[in-house]
Design a binder for these strands. Structure first.
Length: 429
RNA sequence: AGGGGUAUAGCUCAACGGUAGAGCGCUGGCUUGUCACGCCAGUGGUUGCCGGUUCGAAUCCGGUUGCCCCUGCCA
């Protein structure tokens, strides 16, 4: 079976009139006009019109269904079509695979199926150009992040997702059988990336993490992708600068490199205004106080509070200097007020995109913080060991990639920007 | 875990107590410039499931399941 193509559709244009080509892809539409048939054929690069004239040619589309895979051999011609500058006149159509009818969703997107039906047929959903655009954009976002961090001397690393101890903190981990032992799925690379600053100074990792929380919201998944960095000799304000660069670069890079995707999604990506506003937790609670929301120092900001803040600060902004009691054991306190921490969240309106800060590097302090938070230092022995081997002062953050995608594409539900999302109900496909 | 909404043809939806419909798709016919082709004819249903009220239930009520949204949970 020969299925070699000479060209991607995107490589063809009207200046190639008279050229013989072989293209292949998926039948998007079939329009039969008696002795003339038009097909629209799509591959990953674009869509072309195929014209069949004459009885021998027309016979070849007998039984052909939409979304079937075909190989087309033909000649480039100028086209009278409104939507195509050229067309491929063919008398040889090879049907490589017939698609069933009916399909579970309309793959062209003329009728938008609900998210559940689309996720059940996700691979087919990618034939919808709007959906495809999201994941093409996602590729470019990842490329941009890697470029920015690499330029800033961060090394990409891979840490284990299968871990032996659930001792990282209080959140719910998925547990699984690991031969005769108990294992867990990592919910963050936090401890590993801190340890790596000893040898590599600046590291980043882009990976999936797992949280066993039965959250039913448009911004939570049980499996999500996080971009994490950790850097020796950086303070929390330094890594905020890094985060700001990463985010701004993503917007600039995709604004420039993804015009077609923006058109498909009907969005215009614009570089956000910099620098991002940095608002302290204290100032945020005062602002909320003026809106009639009374908060004690140490109260966490609930969704309703963040929504209120988001109204006042609709774009990107940092919330900094959180009370120590709201932060995990490894967060470093402030010099001038040990009840506050060198920490921050990156917000987009009400939505938390990232959380980070300076970490403790003094083993004695770290140990006492563990105890303070009711954790058992014995369970952190492997981690604590590294702090005796010359732990540099260091800071870092974790950025929710799926949430960033949701902001970039202006799509509320993270399920839309994740290929095969996992939530408490959905484990398939 | 709590609250709100929703479930009707393959898909998207209407009908809201009185014979279950439309558009798209699909099948057949006609059609040489379509591009959401057009015209004619056809195809398509246990109205999610179980029970109740009623002369009569897609419609009202109770339960159940799936889904959507909000809250909670969420170093």
């Amino acid at each position: 079976m020969d299925f070699k193509r000479t060209h991607y559709i995107g490589q063809l244009d009207s200046s190639m009139e008279g050229k013989n080509v072989v293209v292949g892809g998926w039948v998007e539409d079939i329009r039969e006009l008696g002795k003339l048939t038009f097909l629209t054929l799509r591959d990953v690069t674009g869509v072309a019109q195929i014209v069949l004239v004459g009885e021998d040619s027309l016979k070849q589309t007998k039984g052909l269904t939409r979304q079937s895979v075909i190989k087309v051999t033909g000649t480039i011609k100028k086209s009278k079509a409104r939507d195509f500058a050229y067309e491929i006149k063919s008398n040889k159509i090879d049907i490589l695979t017939i698609a069933i009818h009916p399909l579970p969703i309309d793959p062209i997107g003329r009728l938008e199926s609900n998210i559940d039906n689309r996720l059940n047929a996700r691979a087919l959903d990618l034939r919808n150009q709007k959906t495809a655009a999201i994941f093409k954009l996602r590729h470019h976002v990842l490329a941009s992040i890697r470029k920015t961090l690499t330029e800033k001397s961060f090394l990409e690393v891979n840490t284990p997702k299968l871990i032996g101890s659930a001792s990282e903190g209080g959140a719910n981990l998925f547990s699984l059988k690991y031969f005769e032992k108990q294992a867990y799925l990592a919910q963050s690379p936090q401890l590993y990336k801190e340890q790596l600053t000893i040898g590599l100074e600046r590291v980043f990792e882009i990976a999936s993490y797992y949280r066993a929380e039965k959250s039913h919201t448009v911004r939570h998944l049980t499996e999500f992708t996080s971009v994490d960095i950790e850097a020796a000799f950086m303070d929390y304000s330094d890594v905020m600068d890094v985060l700001e660069s990463v985010v701004v670069d993503v917007f600039e890079y995709t604004a420039k490199n993804c015009p077609a995707e923006q058109k498909s999604l009907d969005i215009e990506i614009k570089k956000p205004f910099i620098p991002f506003e940095r608002i302290t937790y204290k100032k945020a609670t005062e602002e909320l106080g003026r809106d009639g929301i009374k908060l004690e120092v140490g109260d966490d900001l609930q969704d309703a509070h963040l929504r209120k803040l988001g109204e006042r600060h609709p774009g990107f902004y940092f919330l900094t200097d959180w009370p120590m009691k709201l932060k995990p054991f490894y967060i470093h306190e402030k010099d001038d007020d040990p009840t506050l921490s060198r920490s921050f969240d990156l917000q987009y309106g009400y939505l938390e995109l990232s959380s980070g800060g300076m970490r403790l590097h003094d083993p004695a302090k770290l140990k006492s913080r563990l105890i303070e938070q009711g954790l058992n230092p014995v369970q952190f022995e492997d981690h604590l060991k590294a702090f005796d081997w010359g732990m540099p002062p260091h800071s870092g953050w974790g950025l929710g990639l799926d949430r960033l995608m949701s902001v970039l594409t202006n799509i509320d539900n993270v399920r839309e920007v994740v290929l095969y999302p996992r939530d408490p109900e959905r484990l398939f496909p």
